[in-house]
Design a binder for these strands. Structure first.
Lengths: 145, 145
DNA sequence: TTGACAAATAAGAATGATTACTATATAGTA
DNA sequence: TACTATATAGTAATCATTCTTATTTGTCAA
């Protein structure tokens, strides 16, 4: 396991303790599996992966667990336009390029985007937790077709 | 009907002609109804509104029509994280503040956000059609609770 | 370590959104 | 006006998500 994953695991234990979520084999496995993922998987995709280790885990457990992870902030829900929910590990701030044809999401990092200021009128409307730039378009693969 | 709505209606006729979509009373009504909306309605919400005028319109027609409008680019699908699809009229470029508790989406305009540059590495991955900043957080209403 | 209790799980059913199907109706055009 | 491809209403089917219930498990105090 890489250093950054050990760090992630620590956050997992800390946050679970803080929010009074018990550490179960299912939760631990689901967390590990999502931490490895680079493809913004759906709950169903994670379910298929964890079943290789825990063959009788239920889909409901996977789904519920992913949602509770997003609630305590150790996992992110990825924005889309109404398809299945997609999840990603809560890594450093990054942004998304989303293909409107195949729905693939490409991550990218950009310091200028990280530093954009929140307008004052929006600050008055609530507390901002996330800033993200979403670029939408057609990816090279879909362009070819 | 206001000037800008007349303009919208022209775009509607032009785009429909261009893409060979027939102008039907249902389509025309659905387009008008969404053009008036400021609340990023779901298909179901639009269905309820148009039924006041066309009482026997089917939900399927409304849903299908909204999707075909997004395909020809006269309507936008709003980003979210896996809830029901939400639609908005395709107006001038704007950005969203999205409450993660109640899912309400607040529009705002910001010139600096409109002008952000697309990084070169992303330009190589595809053609960008939309740039949008999504701010997520907790809105004042939900904060109170 | 053991026992009690609250929390978590598996399994499957229920709900709700979205999509597909089919017979009928209609817009656009000769 | 008549023709033809397209669109529609009504309904059924599918798929994602959420709920229910009986059982199991983690945690903590003794």
């Amino acid at each position: 396991m890489k250093i950054e994953n050990q760090e992630l695991k620590k956050t997992f234990y800390n946050k679970c303790a803080e929010k009074e979520l018990k550490i179960t084999p299912q939760r631990s496995l689901i967390f590990d599996e999502l931490s490895k993922a680079t493809d913004h998987p759906t709950a169903d995709a994670i379910y298929k992966r964890v079943r290789k280790t825990l063959s009788n885990i239920s889909f409901d457990t996977v789904y519920r667990t992913l949602l509770s992870f997003t609630e305590i902030g150790i996992v992110n829900l990825v924005e889309g336009t109404g398809e299945q929910k997609r999840f990603e590990p809560n890594l450093q701030q990054h942004h998304h390029f989303r293909c409107i044809k195949c729905y693939t999401i490409y991550d990218f990092e950009n310091d200028a985007y990280n530093d954009i200021a929140v307008p004052e009128d929006v600050q008055r409307q609530g507390v901002i937790i996330n800033k993200r730039v979403v670029l939408e378009g057609i990816c090279s693969k879909c362009k070819v077709k």
